[in-house]
Design a protein around this nucleic acid. Sequence first.
DNA 1: CATGATAGCGCG
DNA 2: AAAGCGCGCTATCATG
Length: 576
Amino acid sequence: MDAADAPAWIVLGRSPHGVTAILLDEVAAERARVTLTVDSLAGWVADAESAHAPRWVWNDTPRWYADLLAAGVRVARCHDLRLCHAILRDSALIASAGDLRDAVEWDAAPHAQEHAVPALFELDGAASGRLTLPEGPEDSLAEFARQRAAIAGSRDPGRLRLLTAAESAGALVAAEMRAAGLPWDAAEHDRILVATLGERPLAGGQPALLAAAAARVRDALGDPGASLDSQPKLLRALHRVGVLVESTNRWELAEQRHPVIEPLLEYKKLSRLLSANGWTWLGEWVADGRFRPVYIPGGVVTGRWASSGGGALQLPRQLREAVRADPGWRLVVADVAQLEPRVLAAMSGDTALAAAARGRDLYAGIVESGAVASRQEAKIAILGAMYGATTGESGRLVPRLRRAYPRAMGLVDEAARTGEDGGTVSTWLGRTSPSPSSDWSALQSRATEAEASGADETRARRRARDRGRFTRNFVVQGTAAEWALAWLADLRTRLAGMPAVDAAHAAPRSGPVFADRPHLAFFLHDEVIVHTPEEHAEAAAQAVEDAATAAGRLLFGGFPLDFRLDVRIAETALKD
DNA sequence: CATGATAGCGCG
DNA sequence: AAAGCGCGCTATCATG
């Protein structure tokens, strides 16, 4: 290929004898085809990447990229057909998504191929179509053409190009973070467990401190055989000693005054640590000094990531000290302050809320504006506004925010109304909420019929409000997820451009691509952890800041708002 | 014995 | 002290 023919896009697909690569120019016209063996793929991709830096088009990022990364090959950009299909199929910015909706074979669930059942048990074609993603080069080429046409013909191609690029970049980040892993100090984890629970029991028993808490609970219950792990039995035991709670959840128990409460809360806390993140978890999920969870980009309806296995997005703060940089390396731990209200200010163009947020803690700014009296009130009011609280202190405070920030509150109130009426809402870049279920719609129309009972109407009204709270939150949570994707994507590029360290200072457990340079190691909605050689830690921290600024500009242009970060360079991820 | 629903709790 | 959104995971218990 000479320079004039440099491919802008390369579509990869499985063919009978290996892999076919289809080279497309800037307007996606086909220029060439190359047939590769599976063994030669990684080398060919590496050469094409360094020569042309094309955008790689493939059906499913983990399916292709995990092997490339293992072979030491990284790519800069891709277009993930599965993820982009899901966005474009539903986006309200696209007037005629008919052919995308018809291409139901692209609706396959994430990583469905891993769970695919043998053909023997498949009942019909429709069932199998939902289980496996198309793999052939022609399939991907055709889907890519549908998606490009849908974007080009949409009401806002610019936003959808941004969104599909950001979603695809997120898919690359997710695969890369799994490959690199989160540095995890198993010995420190064990120390935390021993200090909290007692020594690990050899066979079957409970660790000493957990057993001691259980004994104190049984003593306070006056029942040596009381079962503490069965909710119904525990509830009955509590009733027998006069603790008249309706559930055994922590908040309700904490309201009670009885000698059993303190040890019971302690028991629950320890028991949770043991079952969720105890030695079993450690043995199953941490290997060679790394925790390697499966991230699922786009796994939440709002566009947030989900995870599968290991509970990657629920790591208890208690265990943060076990997240520890390799020797000679550091962690850059960064989280965004009040991401969602800042995003709300920007997307609604609410300059008053943006002014309250600029250069400081957003809640402090709201207090200064006089809308509420304390930081705590500001926080409760803002969360209530974004989640749709109607009762309690939160519900009481929201009207004050409506007066102070009518544009921001108007945006979420309008999203709630649309949802209650059965409509759909969209994020800033055009990800659109699902339509109501047929059950929901049937319930609403039944309630308007002449013979509807009062109970029908009450139930319909309640379900309508439930949906209103969902759509109210969708626009904010979803746009915050878009900001976070832009942040991640920009940061990833900045880190990739930083100089490598020599082999003596490398961290080989991070795998061939990441052993010698700063890399993303963890992401959780509004927080990132970068694992970096010590000599690049300051630069990596600056990159995290610069990427946040760039993400704000990319989404909201010159709107006068900053996205403030709390950034620390440390050996562990421990907070405060 | 396997599967699904529920309670509870971890994270943002 | 707790309610308003989004999740995943474990343990228990009812049902097939």
